[in-house]
Amino acid sequence: MTALAPHSLDYRQQAPEVAARFERIKQRPVILSVKDLKKTFGQNGSTRTVFDGVSLDIHRREFITVIGPSGCGKSTFIRIIAGLDECNGGVALLDGKNIGEPGPDRGMVFQGYTLFPWLTVKRNVMFGIEMRGKGKFVAEAEARQWLEMVGLSKFEDAYPHELSGGMKQRVAIARALANEPRILIMDEPFGALDAQTRAQMQSYLLQIWRKVDITILFITHDLEEAAYVSDRILVMGTNPGRVVEFIENPIPRPRSPAQFVSPEYLALKMRLEELIHPPVEVEEDKLPVVKMTSAGDDVE
């Protein structure tokens, strides 16, 4: 009955175990706290607001996705959290301390992999560990563990150009996790992958997240991806960039692709569709019809 009429289910309605889980999450310490963050571009004369008034608290081991149409400033937002850009107002605290320059406490996974092409897979993962001042031998042992975690032990001596896109991104995840960051920031990490690999990688990431004590801030423009992986979804709007809604994901864990037809999933997806693709007037009917050739019968 519910499967046939998903609209009847409200996306805010949570099963008892889901509600209980959110209660527990809220008990956990806050890792990242953002208040009224603001970013503008341009000098005094003509400034353009990228986003304004973005606030959120991320608790330990929470999986947050940020979603929004292009131009809402979601990438700029996480670049500020990573320390790669500066904000023009508001505060961002990591463990209660102001975030500053980029550092190993905020691991980052980019859409373009950004593996170091001159280093082997193992050496890529060792990079951050060595930067923290650990010796080569220790770094190598730790890098091996992380490569095992992402299932790439066999490729430790390969160079990045020898790997597929999905494998590269797994190395990038291992490299970021090897620094034992407080938060893992992922900027559309699977955006460059084909649909099939992307689905695999989402499940992979959830597996890794179950095994490792890590808080994740995940940017995407794919709302199905956001619904599949997240605990909470920060939906951003554009012109200017702002928070539209902060949704608690009602889909119970553990997640699996079988849930893609569950009423909670459909209700959530419906809501996300509404927020991100607001209904526009369909212009299709007004377009002129050009007849090329007759197929002999009516093509509908």
Binding site: P102, M131, R175, A176, N179, I185
Partner: peptide, 15 residues
């Protein structure tokens, strides 16, 4: 040099 590589290195603690 690809600036993304430098940014990636910065987030890994290199400076």
């Amino acid at each position: 040099v690809d600036p993304a590589l430098i940014e990636a290195a910065q987030t890994l603690g290199a400076k």
